[in-house]
């Protein structure tokens, strides 16, 4: 179960980064989707590691997800807003 929650959390964070990278969405939509995905990752990590551990893991996981997205996806189209 823990492995599943961790996988869901990391996938959410990766999707959040891909969402941030897109230029076909408005800023409001991006913000809403990002908040939703970040919240999902936060809940998953907190279920596994507790409140403090989960919060730390979510932030660190987001950093790594962003880095991987940038390195793998390459140059982003021009961002809106």
């Amino acid at each position: 179960m823990n492995e599943l929650l961790i996988t869901i959390a990391m996938v959410s964070l990766l999707l959040m980064m891909l969402n941030l990278r897109k230029n076909t969405l408005t800023l409001a939509t991006k913000t809403f989707l990002s908040a939703l995905l970040f919240g999902l990752a936060l809940i998953c990590f907190m279920s596994v590691y507790g409140i403090l551990g989960g919060a730390i893991c979510t932030v660190v996981g987001a950093m790594l997800a962003g880095l991987l997205t940038a390195v793998i996806a390459g140059k982003a189209p021009q961002l809106l807003g």
Partner: peptide
């Protein structure tokens, strides 16, 4: 945030990597 031009010359890719 997501600027990483790995298809360009090495020095551009390295510069982007450093920033990213």
């Amino acid at each position: 945030l997501f600027t990483f031009r790995r298809d360009k010359e090495l020095d551009i890719a390295v510069s982007d990597a450093h920033k990213v």
